[in-house]
Amino acid sequence: MSSDSAADASIESSSKTATPLLRIEGVSKRFGTIEALQDVSFDIYPGEVVALLGDNGAGKSTLIKIISGTLEADSGQIYYNGEPVVIKSPSEAKALGIETVYQDLSLCLNVDVVANFFMGRELTHNVLGFKVLQEREMEAETEQVLGEIGTEIPSIRTNVEHLSGGQRQAIELSRFVHWGGKLVLLDEPFAALGVKQTRRGLELIERVKERGIAVVVITHNMIHAFQVADRVVVLRNGRVLGIRPAQATNPEEVVRLITGEIARQSA
């Protein structure tokens, strides 16, 4: 099976001429006796949207966490712009231009929208050695970005705990649109969203892609996946079962890969 996926990968990469933005090579991760990831390899190119698909426990979130610096791989190598890198923390990932949106929201409910939007990126000026927040500038920028995205939030000085689930998700999404960097990792970004908001979310992914930013998106929803993805990567039990251009496959085949029917057939 791994030779199968490796073959797929080599076909894919040979079809592109540019260096991949991110290359994952032979990454494995264990939690005790559970092999969460085994010898996982794939590439992502600038401006490409890759859907990472698989059943619960297939290892999708683990993989995202390794790329975003929250977890460290046991073995394997990550190349970024062709250079081997070790990403030890989220701040290192951010320094490389990798932005992540997690399944469980990364918001602090006890502070307002502005503080959340600028979390870890506060605008400051120096006063007697203190990094003093530039609240007005941050407020204006937040207002502008949320406006662009078209999210309606009554006051951006409201604490996030008083906002609805959809509004919260919108803040989270607005962060990746604005701070996108070079690679955005989205872990189930639409889980809490209504129909309208999901559509807007998918549009946002398109918009980010147009700016040449690569996107990896985890989703359970085949329709969403096929709407935005250039390629799909299917994981099962911690292994890559297949990498297909979105046009070259269809939801039915992917579902059969996910559930293991195809693997059983080939075995």
Binding site: S91, A95, S106, C108, V111, A115, G120
Partner: peptide
């Protein structure tokens, strides 16, 4: 600001690249 963020959600704060 970061103290409030950590107290509110340490995981989110860590993910946001704050030490």
């Amino acid at each position: 600001r970061h103290l409030y963020l950590i107290g509110g959600n340490a995981t989110a704060t860590f993910r946001a690249g704050i030490n």
